[in-house]
Amino acid sequence: MEITVTNVHVDDQQKALEFYTNVLGFEKKTDVPAGGARWLTVVRPKSPDGVELLLEPTGTADVAEALETYRETLVSNGIPWTQFSCEDVEAEYDRLREQGVEFTQEPMTAGGVTMAVFDDTCGNLIQIIHQ
């Protein structure tokens, strides 16, 4: 087995696509209709065949409600939904801050790992790291 897709739940797929491509710099890979929503994924431009990030809608009302409680608790405690790696956290921090991205955790280095946490504007916190 191999991990080919991972997900992040988003309030609004179109808004999420714009943030994940225009701001973060990912590239749209798949965009097809699926059950009233879209199967919408993005990839790293340099690795189009790498792991895809699925921008998954929060879904039907009961799921959406439960998910909202869960995600709000994570965000409220500063807990990231997932983690991306990058070459230089400080450089990404500066680049994203310039575009108005809000960080809940500024870059810090511990145990040889530099990390920071930002708000993806779609209901999640994302951690970026380099080591």
């Binding site: 405690n77 807990i79 990231p80 955790q105 511990a110 145990g111 946490v117």
Partner: peptide
């Protein structure tokens, strides 16, 4: 002014505290 998450990361990675959130 740290989030709970950041505090837990610092306790674990900088102070070797092995504790759940």
């Amino acid at each position: 002014g740290q989030t709970l998450y950041e505090l837990c990361v610092r306790l674990t990675m900088e102070h070797d505290v092995d504790m759940t959130r």
